[in-house]
């Protein structure tokens, strides 16, 4: 269920002003209490939204990472990293 936790924290960026501020100030500290796998945590801290998408995180929700500019992301870097994911005709990641 940890993909749920990643999806949920993305929405919490929108909903929870304190969490948004904490993620902008120190993402590692803000993510520390959350029930994430190490690959998920590393990908979040690296702003590796492509890896997260391939793990099954929702693209729409991850857009909040760029909108609120956390984990080193902005619209441009988010766009480039997400567009680098190879997908099939219906947007599912392919090897």
């Amino acid at each position: 269920m940890s993909i749920f936790a990643v999806n949920h924290l993305c929405r919490e960026l929108l909903r929870d002003q304190a969490f948004r501020a904490a993620m902008k100030a120190d993402p590692a500290k803000a993510l520390a209490p959350l029930d994430l796998t190490e690959p998920e945590r590393r990908a979040l801290l690296d702003g590796d939204v492509g890896a997260l998408y391939r793990m099954g995180v929702n693209g729409f929700l991850m857009g909040y990472l760029a909108r609120f500019e956390v984990c080193g992301l902005n619209v441009q870097s988010y766009n480039e990293r997400m567009r680098a994911v190879k997908v099939d005709e219906i947007g599912q990641p392919v090897a």
Binding site: G59, F60, G63, V75, Y78, N79, R83, V87, G91
Partner: peptide, 17 residues
């Protein structure tokens, strides 16, 4: 429309696949 996913247009947060 694609929002936040890999089929966004370059430099945008959305696209029309």
């Amino acid at each position: 429309l694609e929002v936040g996913g890999p089929r966004m247009a370059p430099g945008r947060s959305d696209g029309v696949p």
